[in-house]
Design a protein around this nucleic acid. Structure first.
Length: 420
DNA sequence: TCTGGGGTCCTAGGACCC
DNA sequence: TCTGGGGTCCTAGGACCC
């Protein structure tokens, strides 16, 4: 058993990932301008007026352009902003290349998101040497071999490694060892701490906590009474306490699959809503089958024109991955909870996944279950081979609603988790 | 013309059983 | 007859992350 205090963890974070990866790709294809050097951003579909900034270059950030912001607002701040579309298959390739390179330095590498990894360097010193020197070597190798820059944070646990990698960007290595916490982390505003979002920031500010240091030195009982177990968690984080393991292979376990969309027009009738639900279910069910899984729970979410969201879910008697069954469930859920308000967005989610291998079909089950499964399998194969839009259901023939809504293809996106 | 889309975990409260 | 209390399952909603 290794002493938890003696662990060495690195957090590797790609600087402006989507933008950097696109820039490298464009340069390789002969572009003369490096997108990283000009005000630029990767953005969603502008034509549909729902595009947001997915990543911005450092020059764009200087104009105040932020990730998550709507494109027209970003353009107001920065009129010359160059917007390029996302290329998810490219991002996956870059992410995989990074992951493979990191695995040369430790068998324990956790893919935390498409552009972040944790690497457990504990015990690897005898092979590669001092962690800081190795971090610099890794960083330079990534730059030379893969063409993009990263920040690497080093700490005794995942939390401090992650906080370290965010200290100063880009292309930097930082350490955040226990003795460095007071002067490197405590002066930061409390919302810079992982897991302190806007709501928690406000609650903390209300009781006079402004910095991470204030939180670290706050009365634990007070935090407990205001924030329950969450208060304890963030107090521990503020003090650099975290014992979570680097989970190699953890990303293989998927908890749920969802697909949601913002509709170009407000929907006011059931039939149109049903159609959109079907288009969402098409992609969810397909991804579910690709993962060789079935779901036990189906949920839907309605977002109205006032941007208020509500949801409804139900457990199924028998787990399924059949498009039609999930659609029937989604339709029923919708009819049960829709308040008749104007619908701006809809979402479908399946959860409590299980393997599709030994699904029991009950006596009461649909007699055509095998037929439905065979149909789904054929459709999946054709879509795989010839593209998603070749086959679609008759209801979509009027082209009012796209036959398969939103989302990114299953295989394109590695499954990730936001918990440490 | 105005805030995306994909995930995770936690908690409160109701239903139901013993 | 009316009033527990604990445990578990389920659902809705909220918070966070990238």
């Amino acid at each position: 058993m290794i002493d938890a205090g003696k662990r060495t963890i690195m957090h590797i974070d790609v600087n402006s990932a989507f933008l950097s990866w696109t820039a490298v790709y464009e340069l390789q294809r002969g572009a003369t301008v490096d997108l990283r050097a000009i005000p630029s951003a990767v953005g969603g579909n502008q034509a549909e007026r729902r595009g947001v900034i997915l990543a911005a270059s450092i020059p764009a950030k200087k104009y105040g352009v932020k990730t998550g912001e709507v494109i027209w607002q970003a353009k107001q701040k920065c009129p010359g902003l160059v917007i390029v579309p996302p290329n998810y298959s490219l991002y996956l390739k870059c992410s995989n290349a990074l992951f493979e390179l990191l695995q040369e330095y430790s068998p324990k590498v956790q893919r935390f998101s498409i552009d972040e990894c944790f690497l457990d360097y504990t015990g690897m010193e005898i092979h590669f040497g001092n962690p800081v020197e190795v971090a610099y070597r890794i960083k330079e190798r990534i730059k030379k071999e893969l063409g993009f820059t990263v920040n690497i944070g080093i700490g005794r646990n995942k939390l401090t490694a992650k906080m370290a990698s965010e200290l100063e960007k880009p292309d930097k290595v930082h350490t955040l060892y226990p003795e460095e916490i007071p002067y490197k982390m405590w002066s930061l505003p409390v919302e810079k701490l992982v897991m302190v979002g806007p709501k928690t920031k406000k609650k903390l500010n209300d009781i006079g906590i402004e910095t991470i240091g204030d939180l670290a030195n706050a009365d634990l009982e007070l935090l407990k009474s205001r924030l329950k177990s969450y208060g304890v968690l963030i107090w521990q984080y503020a003090n650099g306490i975290d014992n979570s393991p680097v989970r190699a292979g953890y990303h293989l376990m998927m908890k749920g699959i969802s697909n949601s969309t913002t509709i170009k027009f407000d929907v006011e009738d059931r039939e149109t809503a049903h159609k959109i639900l079907l288009s969402l279910v098409e992609s969810v069910a397909q991804r579910l089958r690709k993962a060789r899984s079935c779901c036990r729970v189906v949920s839907i979410e309605i977002r109205n024109s006032e941007l208020f969201s509500y949801s409804h879910q139900r457990r199924l008697h028998v787990p399924t991955n059949v498009t039609n069954e999930i659609y029937e469930a989604a339709k029923k859920l919708f009819d049960e909870c829709w308040k008749g308000d104007k619908i701006r967005g809809l979402g479908v989610r399946v959860s409590e996944l299980c393997s599709d291998e030994f699904i029991q079909t009950t006596m009461f089950d649909d007699a055509d279950i095998e037929k439905k499964k065979a149909l789904d399998a054929v459709i999946d194969r054709v879509r795989e081979k010839y593209g998603s839009y070749l086959i679609f259901r008759g209801v979509f023939a009027d082209r009012e609603v796209p036959p398969i809504a939103g989302g990114v293809d299953a295989e394109i996106y590695p499954v990730m988790t936001s918990i440490l």
